[in-house]
Each structure stands twice: as C-alpha cells, then as structure tokens.
Amino acid sequence: MIRKATASLIVLLLCCGLSISQKTANPYELPLEEVHWMREATLQQLNGCCVKGTNGLWLHTPDGVGNYKALWTRDFYYMVEYAGDLMDPEEIKASIHYLMNGQREDGCMPDRVNVDAKAVYSPGGDNNPMADHALDNGPFMALLVCSYVNQFKDAALFGAVEEKLLKGLDFINRASSGLVYNDPENPQCVYGFTDTVKKTGNLLFTSLIYYKACKEMEALSRKYENGNPNIYSVRAKNIQKSIHKLMDEESGMFWAADKDCRQIDIWGSAYAVYVGITSEEQSKKISEYLIHNVDQIFMNGQIRHLPGSDASWNNLFVPIAEGAYQNGAYWATPLAWVVPVIAKQDRPLAKKLLQDVIKDFQKNGINECINTDYINIPNYVASGTNVYWLTR
C-alpha cells in the first residue's frame, strides 16, 4: 500500500560522511537521524490507518490504527499533499473516485464516505450531524484532485472530474465580495479542524482554502485545456481583493470571521501568507507576530488556534472544555504552513520548533492535539504527514 524506504540507502548515506545538505533536501538542516525517524513514523501511520471498504478498496482513515471507519476528504488531502511520495498513486486515484461518488445532486461534496460507501456531508455523528454540510468540502475535494494530478501528471483524471469539482465549488455559499459566507441564521460547519466552532459571517480559513483551490484549478484548466480557467481566476481575484475585510489592523493578523468568533485566527493568518494572498508587508507582520508570541501559542512545537489572550472560542456547536480539542489545545497539523512562515523571519526558531515537535512525537507519540496532561487521539495521521513534509 505504501512506498517503503530502503534501509541500505540510509546506511549508505551515514557511512559516506556527506554533509546534511547533501543527504537531504530538507531546508531546516535537521540531523539525518531525525529525518529518517520522521519518515519511518509517517510510513507507519499511513500503513496503520488503512481499512478495507466493502468494495475492497483500502481507505486511509484519520488515525494510524484504523479505529475510524471512513475516508475523510480533508484528512486525505493532507496525506496526499504532504506525503504523496509515500503513497500508491493508484490507491489515491481510486479513493478520489470513492469520495466523488458521494457528491450530492446539488453539488455538495462529502465530508467523508464510510466503509459501506455511505456519504456523510457534515461533521458530527452519521445520525446526528452538526449541520447540513461543511463549507470546506468542495474546496478540499478540488485541492485533493489538484494535488494528485500535479504530483502524478494524471491529465485524464482531471478532465474526467473538472466539471464535478466546479459544481462542488459552486455549491459553497459566498458573499458578493467573493468570500465564503456562513449565514448566522443557518450556520454550517466551517474549516474541518475547527468544525465544532460556530464561526459566522465572512470566513477567513474557508475563503483561503477556496482561494487556493481556485488558483490550482485555474492552473490545471489552462494546462490541460479542460473547463473555463477564467471562472477560477475571477473567483480567486475576488477573494484576494476582499480578504482585507477580515484584517485586524492593530495586530496585523486576520479575524477568523467577522460576526460570531471575530477573534484572531493563528492558523488562518499563517495560512494566508502560505497561500500567497498577503502583501510583503502583511506577511512580515504575521511572521513577526508568531515569533513574538511563540511562548503563548506553542507547546512542544505544536500550536493552538487562538492567541494566548483568548482562552476559548466565543461560539461553539457543542460544549468543549477550555484547553481541550479545538478550544485551546495545541496541534501539529498546521505546522506544514506555520513553520515556513516563521522561517521567513527566523529560520533558527523554525528549526527549533520542528525539532521540538519531533521530540514530542518520539516521547509521547503522534497525537491529534495536546495540552498539559491532555492528549487527544493518538496515532493521528495528518499530524505525522504534515510534519514529515517539512523534513523532506
């Protein structure tokens, strides 16, 4: 199922006495032992997370011991985007079709598809969803396909699904400004790693995911001459023009939303820099904010959603204790974009944070999120894949 590294290659590198820059393309110059450990640990998570669906397809579930019994769209995107080199492209393609077969007639893409091929459109239980759907389903489905096509040059797949992906993007509610909009009177779930948080109004993170999806769809549409690239171009430009509506001028960071949960979004602000939507000045301010507040927002190399001054979100779909899960715990998933943003201004700090999280993984396991005397979901695959990417 997964591409295995050869131990002989590692031994050869160690014996040759090469400099670390010669041994690995990793830009943070980690010791080779840490790079190798992270690769093997990620392979273990990817192998362990596979469960067989009723149709015989191996599904990559969110946890590395196969407790979950579904293929989640956003989690699978992170696996493919950040560890696609460790995965079987044929299995990725089959899983893409498995997810896309769950698209509703109105265009809504699934949040997940269970092992019995039943599509589910909202976070929450299969029989007690938190909303009708999640607003990131369509953008993440587009990003998943684009990531696979870009890595494995599968023009045929893109041509076969481009129209369906556009329909999935069309389904997502957007304001006239182009930003993804969550109606306070009928709120849907937002970005899946904050799906319990009831953010309403114009949304930061989901708009950024939509922006990135449109940029990548435009590029592939032009490259393979499928669909109308101008549709995606216009939508991305509208988001770029309007994202300032969510800017907090005092801090230089972005609000998570402009109605409910009008709070500084640490993950989302860093992601704005990562996807290239911010100006050079804005990027510098966000990078510096992360650096100056490192002691308040990081623990063992992992990062919380909110600034240290905010103990919890203002509005939630379900009660969550302060400091737990999406309401104040520390996560490894966003490090894939947070660490590079910090490195723009302070590469030694970026390296230290990366080494801190690897040390925590080695000591306490690869977990979904942590806090003092708190661990949630051991063997969480996206934590592993997203940190692994930084060591490649």
Rank of each mutant, 00 (worst) to 15 (best):
E281K: 00
Y191P: 00
C261H: 02
P229N: 14
F298Y: 14
A213K: 03
L208H: 05
N186R: 12
A272T: 10
E281L: 13
K284W: 09
N228K: 10
M217N: 03
E218W: 09
Y211D: 11
K285C: 13
R222H: 07
Y224M: 02
R222N: 01
G301F: 06
T194F: 04
A272V: 04
E288G: 01
N226R: 15
F205A: 12
E250L: 11
S242K: 00
R304E: 14
S309F: 07
M299P: 02
K285E: 13
Q296W: 01
T200L: 07
V190F: 12
I264Q: 01
E288I: 08
G201S: 08
E216N: 05
I297S: 09
R235E: 10
P307F: 08
T196W: 05
Q263F: 14
K198E: 11
E218T: 02
V197L: 04
E218I: 04
R235A: 08
S309W: 05
D295E: 04
N230M: 07
K241R: 09
H292Q: 13
S283Y: 08
E185C: 10
S283L: 06
T278M: 04
E216S: 02
E216R: 01
K223Q: 13
F205H: 00
S309I: 11
D195H: 05
S283I: 03
T196F: 06
C214K: 02
I266P: 09
N182P: 10
V190T: 15
I297M: 00
T200C: 13
K245W: 05
Y289M: 01
Q302W: 02
I243N: 13
I209W: 12
Y289F: 14
N182I: 15
S309L: 08
Y274C: 11
M299L: 15
Y211W: 03
M253Y: 07
I231N: 13
V275R: 03
S309Y: 04
P187I: 04
T196M: 15
S283A: 15
Y181G: 11
